[in-house]
């Protein structure tokens, strides 16, 4: 097999050049998709027969939760690549993904709380999924804090890689134990939407919103990665030429 593409992928300069071509597409596509999905969800779908109009929060809550969870898995993947192949770009990705994932984790928690008030009559319940999401936020914050505390880039990269791998091993354990704890402590709890077979007219804007959020994540990641590349490759000639 030809591995040159793999090495190219690891080259910051190559990535900087090629991602410059992606940027306009990503910008337009993600923002248009999000806009269309949210307007569709807000104005053009019928209300839920149980929850009324408050269910419209789903169009941001669910995509944000999806993102928050999958970004952590992506970070663990980048961490493995960093540790095994020592690809600089993977570590940069690991670094820039953490704040984005944390911001969507917060968004998911806050919109969940706002949704909970009209639906369950309370801002917060110690539901298994809510608790697991909160712990995920702690994991994100831990990685960001560790990155901030170690000053040498190399050591911070490897420490964060190890921490995110440890975290990703723990996520299933935490999820499982929180599920167990919840069923043990409160029998008749308010379950978060028992995945109703959604009507197609609600499902389509939701799928669009999820796609839009993922594209938006890609966009932000590329934006941040490009900055990180400039910052770390500042000693190279091409960055100096680029800047001045």
């Amino acid at each position: 097999m030809n591995w040159t593409f793999f090495h190219k992928l690891g080259s910051p300069k190559w990535f900087y050049d090629i991602s410059g071509k992606w940027l306009p597409w990503l910008q337009v596509l993600s923002l248009v998709l999000i806009l269309v999905a949210l307007v569709w969800g807000l104005a053009f779908t019928p209300p839920d027969y149980l929850q009324g109009n408050s269910y419209r929060i789903i169009f941001i809550h669910v995509p944000a939760s999806f993102l928050a969870q999958s970004v952590y898995v992506m970070m663990a993947t980048a961490a493995a690549v960093t540790l095994i192949w020592k690809i600089k770009l993977a570590d940069m990705a690991l670094k820039v993904m953490a704040p984005i994932g944390a911001s969507f984790c917060i968004l998911s928690l806050v919109t969940g709380a706002i949704w909970g008030q009209p639906t369950w009559g309370t801002w917060w319940v110690w539901d298994a999924r809510l608790t697991a999401m909160l712990i995920l936020l702690f994991l994100y914050i831990g990685i960001i804090a560790l990155r901030g505390a170690i000053h040498t880039t190399e050591a911070a990269a490897k420490a964060c890689s190890i921490l995110s791998l440890v975290g990703v091993v723990n996520i299933p354990i935490i999820k499982f134990s929180v599920d167990w704890w919840n069923t043990l402590h409160q029998g008749a709890t308010l379950k978060l939407t028992e995945k109703p077979s959604m009507a197609a007219e609600m499902l389509w804007p939701l799928l669009l919103a999820i796609l839009g959020f993922y594209l938006f994540f890609t966009l932000v990641m590329v934006l941040r990665l490009r900055i990180e590349i400039i910052s770390r490759e500042r000693k190279t000639r091409w960055v100096k030429e680029l800047v001045s």
Binding site: L42, G52, I57
Partner: peptide, 20 residues
Amino acid sequence: AMEGHGLYVWSAYAIALAVI
């Protein structure tokens, strides 16, 4: 007004906008 749920829905969307 969103039939009484306006405050919740709109504040959630406002926060989403802020995060974006």
